[in-house]
């Protein structure tokens, strides 16, 4: 028995599914952890998650508490990032804003990615008129710049965080559908898929068990790389007054408020701007690293 296992190990063939998964993950982690930039990105994303979770505990002031007497204070010992036009602590607001940003990002990912994934896989697997119709619909969506389309949706739905999430999700799914379809076209005529079909597996089962798992990797990479775009779109909507409503400390809205003070009180717009930069960069670096790790040939 012992000899056999060793033999199997030596030949590289895993003896169970679990082991195969573990082996794959360890290879993936080795590749990822060698990539310094990706680890920086991962660190930023983890930091965002921690701040979003613990923001209320970490923030030194109430992000909504106004004190007109200390408005527009430059960064100092008690207000690390300074105060805004209503005397609110910008540091606390940036921390609280992390939660809003993270929830937008997660919600969009949870809504748009599975929807795009399933639609793309079905479309690629079935082909024919269904494929044609879906792809033309994605063409229509992709023809518009993303922010403009999101703007149109929010204008129709009414301003607010929930509607901003819906609008961004509506503009994100076509990309995922395209990616999933491309991957599906590669695997749909593979031998193992044909084998499953010959054994009598239904289309849905084939898609679910044999096609979707093959698409997940590129999907994860794509979604991670998109996170920065989602954050920027959300901030853009907030900046234009169509995202979060005041007094919500959404980063884009904070920049919009700080815009008029840029010459004299730079910190109003700069601090949330840096937060957006930092987090977007983190997601991008992580996405790049994930892509390299999932597909070492690329």
């Amino acid at each position: 028995m012992k000899i056999a296992r060793d033999a199997s190990h030596a030949s590289g063939a895993p003896s169970s599914r679990g082991q195969a998964k573990l082996a794959r993950f360890s290879l993936f982690w080795r590749l990822l952890s060698q990539n310094l930039m990706a680890m920086v990105g991962l660190g930023v994303v983890i930091l965002l998650a921690v701040v979003a979770l613990l923001g209320p505990v970490l923030s030194p002031h109430d992000p909504y508490a106004q004190d007109l007497a200390v408005r527009l204070m430059p960064p100092n010992m008690s207000y690390w990032f300074g105060t805004d036009e209503l005397g609110r602590d910008i540091f606390s607001r940036v921390l609280h804003g992390a939660r809003i940003t993270l929830s937008i990002v997660v919600l969009v990912a949870v809504i748009a990615a599975p929807f795009g994934l399933i639609l793309g896989c079905v479309s690629g697997y079935r082909g024919g008129w269904f494929d044609l119709a879906i792809m033309r619909i994605t063409d229509i969506f992709l023809a518009f710049p993303r922010l403009i389309l999101a703007l149109a949706f929010v204008a129709a739905l009414g301003p607010g965080i929930e509607n901003a999430v819906i609008a961004i999700a509506l503009t994100s799914w076509p990309v995922y559908a395209r990616v999933a379809r491309a991957e599906t076209l590669l695997v749909r005529s593979a031998n193992y898929v044909s084998a499953a079909r010959l054994q009598g597996a239904s289309s849905w089962r084939v898609i679910r068990r044999y096609v979707i798992p093959m698409c997940v990797n590129s999907m994860v990479v794509r979604v991670t790389l998109d996170m920065a775009g989602i954050i920027l779109t959300a901030a853009g909507l907030g900046f234009l007054g169509l995202g979060a409503k005041p007094p919500s400390p959404e980063w884009g809205a904070m920049i919009a408020n700080g815009r008029q003070y840029l010459f004299d009180q730079w910190w109003l717009a700069t601090m949330p701007g840096l937060a957006i930069l930092f987090v977007s960069l983190g997601f991008n670096l992580l996405g790049d690293g994930l892509r390299d790790a999932f597909d070492p040939r690329g």
């Binding site: 209503l86 005041p246 007094p247």
Partner: peptide, 8 residues
Amino acid sequence: QIAQAIQA
């Protein structure tokens, strides 16, 4: 700004 001050 006025609205937010009143809101508070």
